[in-house]
Design a protein around this nucleic acid. Sequence first.
DNA 1: GCGAGCAGCGTACCT
DNA 2: ACAGGTACGCTGCTCGCG
Length: 798
Amino acid sequence: MKALFIDVSYKTKGSKPVLTLIFKRKRFFRIHDSSFEPYFYLHSEDVYEAKKAIEQLIVEEKGMVVKAKRVEKVNKILAGKEKEMLRIVCNHPQEVPILREEIKKFGTTYEHNIPFTRRYIIDTGLAPLNTIEFEREGKELKKIIKIHDTPTPKFNTLVFDIETYNPQGAPRPAKDPVIMISYAGETSGVFTTKKIDRPFVHFCSSEKEMIEKFCELIKKKDIEIIMGYNSSQFDLPYLKERASVLKTKLALGRDDSSFTLHRRGLITKAKIKGRIHIDLFHIIRFLATIGALKTFQYTLTEVYSEITGKKKKIVPKLEIWKYWDENLKCGELADYSLNDSVAEKELADQLLPMEFEISKLSKVPLFEICGSSTGTIVEQLLMNRAHWENMIVPNQPKEEEINARVASPAVGAFVKMPEPGIYDKLVVFDFRSLYPSIIISHNIDPFTLNCSCCEKDAFVSPVGHRFCRKKRGLIPTVLEELLQKRSEIKKRMKSLKPGTDEYLQLDARQQALKITANSFYGYLLYPRSRWYSKEAGESTTAWGRHYIQETMKKAEEAGFKVLYGDTDSLMLLLGDKKKKDALEFVAKINSELPEKMELELEGYYTRGVFVSKKGGEKGEEKGAKKKYAMISEDGRIKIRGFELVRRDWAGVAKQVQKQVLEAILKEGSKEKALKIVTDKIDELRAGKTPLEELVIYTQLKKSPGKYEINSPELAAAKKAMNAGMPIEVGSLISFIISRKGSSISDKAMPAELAKDYDAGYYIEHQVIPAVLKILKELGVKKEDLLLGGKQSSLGDWH
DNA sequence: GCGAGCAGCGTACCT
DNA sequence: ACAGGTACGCTGCTCGCG
């Protein structure tokens, strides 16, 4: 039969492990496999002696007698070399750690901590969300015939969101009821305990009935994927506690169980039996950490508007209870509640296809892979592939080793120091997938390092490490395939109409491939990596520095002036040269680069601003790296690093800086820029600036007690805590510098409690520093800003 | 005892 | 809990001066 593979779990029957595979055809169903055996490997100096000893070995643990089921001699590739090793087959997964503890005295054990269900997927080649063709006998799996990569079908999905009564600010689950449960899927609606005149409202006579009706809906609709926003931390635990207070069950699972919490590193996931629960917030956090998404705060409201470009209905969190109490406003609250679920559904529709593809690629079931780190994705992909290649998976490093790795970081990228100034006619080039292409071109891998076969002919990195030229490494092989697949997909997409099902799925797949390919270099230097190699990692960056610097040299030789460059990009001054010359230059560079590497022309810019670093007053001014603004030919402004892109600067300073940059880039008008600044300073002095423009946002990365020194955000956080506001690790502190106090920290007040502002601070520490660094390039001095707008005419800066 | 100068902490950014 | 490179504000210490 053919069915879509979803997930696998195992339990013990008798004393044997039995795997339960979840498949989907029309509905989810289960098939068992009781034939799969757990095992691990041993590398020993004396294979024969070790085998004999292990076969005799009997371990008694907590009254259990544990021994190996069988011991097999196998040939495997360990750290790039063929070795005879032992495969120790066990009776039960739980016996693996017990036997391993005894057996490690014979040598080094491998693959002893791969979870049994992962082991099963790796060894069978089963890929989640692919169609599996198999034979069965009743409920037992007999044989896997083929695995088909078919388009992902539609799932029965439901998004939900709850509203809680919160007269005290934060809702207390022991006392404060859930007042609304909204959902969106095929249809959408709101369960609530008030008779609200809206067509989508389902009236429930009590909170208890509301929870029960919601669970019934999930059961009746046979929901396969259930989602929420921060549902694992808020909605689900809250519902569970309410259910227990109300003496009812939160029957979300197929067996009427509620959910279980699973900690994976820093995130906690809620698992619902027989369904796939996905917390969209985890996906958002993942996208934020890889830099694919950047918002000020990661609230549903902000994320929704960033991703869809649309605004969501808003009811201030602290006023929800008031809306509820005021009968006339209940309708609005219901609209809001429904809108939350509908918005989350839209997010899910956009985000899930990529998660599906990451799951297929890494072969990790959807529930497990959703929101996991790039390290996990790369690692799982490599583990699967290592198995096919008959390679032993390297062990995870011990704490000690991790610390040693952290203590000795590798040298990274090259960044050129720019000459501060305002420039016209720029051209920007980028290396396409710089690090992946370097890894592929030079066969960089932990186990191609210092091979014995290419003594004279190896790839030698600029830092002196040698990589084999004959045998391909695992990492370059996998990486090359990923890039190859991605370019094929991109080619196919060109022949399709955007928006079709096939196009969207291909787009999701190319995103997954890109994210994964871009994570390999990081994984080489990730301290907890199984494939860590400082030599490989630092060779990658060394070649990166080499190519960018060589390209800069060649650009100078070709008569361009190199303004700036960072890692894989370079910015040239076109000067008297034409676009044709830029194209010729890129073609020449590409003819000299290794085949898999490529320099691309990113675009032409009509004007760009570089500023000097702060503090470099005396002696020569040094240009600030990672800080510039440019305007492209078609009028698009690109701003990097300036205060205005940072959340820890006040809105006033950011707005003024933005206007100044725009005035310079678009119009070249110094007068206009000056006027903007002096007007704002006047407004600040007069005390007329609205407090919202003065809020500074800073995240507390540690818990408030763990700081060595005081800081404005910490001081503000403590004041907020005293006022009863919840502050914890990761809280985003919003504060305003008020008039009361001596140090800046003393003056920092939580935005919610601030009544006034310190004009002097905002003028001297926010607005002036933000704009002066730019206006300095036009000859403006600090006094010019403080004295007002009587200025000389625009000088020529060219 | 006091202010200037500076190191180091801490955060957020860039590629 | 993917990497390293960078800017920069603020605190709190050291140091020179008196």
